[in-house]
């Protein structure tokens, strides 16, 4: 077994003024190339856990390692430039064009401008947007789905060693979401990208995940492959979440999963 891309060891975060920990003693590994979904209701700590990886949230106890090095000992700016980051609100920079948004990390890293241009075109094509039409657009001229594609392209721009995604498809309608999910799977598979993906949507988790981390109240309820959680829930919480015993639900998702991966 290869060394983990991300290793959480007893990761704990307490927010000031809150009586319980936002995340409480979380430990697990993310294997390189794996897509791991952090699943749970809002307030369960899944976003907090994600944000400890790129040090947007500091740990109060425990350790997070990124490809073997303790993130707490890594310069946060350098660390973040090696980790793609995409969020539900997208956060495209309103005063920059689509091309400038996608090129932001390469330009911070000092890439030459023709290398950035070529990379921007490559990424726009990858997320299925015509470079000629979209390079010069401003974020306000994009639909929600288009903005989210640009957000994903921006996260991937500097060939990061891992990708952190916080409910990236939470704000788009169901049809666009399905499209984006398909494309994410294709991209992540092509790039062999290690991905940590936060969602509260059980269906989305079942479709996308190699491994699901089901969370509640800052703790892990269960970790496993989607079929493990469907077939062998270890708590009532997981049983309810995954409609255990509903064989139609199980068959449907295992079928769609397989289908998405054939295309």
């Amino acid at each position: 077994m290869s060394d983990p891309a991300i290793r959480f060891t007893n990761a704990t975060v307490r927010y000031a003024g809150s009586d319980r920990a936002a995340i409480d003693g979380i430990s697990f590994d993310v294997i390189p190339g794996e897509l791991v979904v952090l699943l749970g209701p809002s307030g369960c700590g899944k976003s907090t856990l994600l944000r400890t990886v790129n040090r947007l949230v500091p740990l109060d106890a425990g350790k997070v390692e990124f490809f073997g090095s303790d993130v707490a000992a890594t310069d946060p700016v350098d660390l973040r430039r090696n980790i793609g980051y995409a969020i539900q609100a997208v956060g495209l920079f309103g005063h920059m064009t689509v091309a400038a948004n996608i090129g932001v990390v390469p330009s911070l890293l000092g890439w030459k401008s023709d290398a950035i241009d070529a990379r921007v075109d490559e990424l726009l094509t990858m997320v299925d947007l015509d470079p000629a039409r979209y390079r010069g657009r401003k974020p306000r001229e994009l639909s929600g789905g288009e903005a989210q594609r640009v957000g994903v392209a921006r996260a991937l721009a500097a060939r990061p060693r891992a990708l952190l995604m916080d409910e990236p498809f939470g704000a788009v309608d169901a049809l666009v979401r399905a499209e984006l999910q398909h494309e994410l799977l294709r991209i992540v598979r092509d790039l062999q990208s290690t991905t940590l993906f936060v969602t509260h949507d059980v269906d989305e988790a079942l479709l996308l995940a190699d491994k699901i981390v089901a969370m509640q109240s800052g703790r892990i309820e269960q970790i496993g492959k989607p079929s493990d959680l469907l077939d062998h829930p270890e708590s009532d919480y997981v049983r309810t979440l995954f409609h255990s015993g509903d064989s139609l639900y199980r068959e449907y998702f295992l079928h769609v999963r397989a289908e998405m991966r054939e295309q």
Partner: peptide, 25 residues
Amino acid sequence: DRAQIDAARGLGMSPRQVLARVEVP
């Protein structure tokens, strides 16, 4: 917009770059 600042930090801008490239514009 907080999302733009979160994205700027998360993508690896230093505090000064967040100010100069996102907040001030």
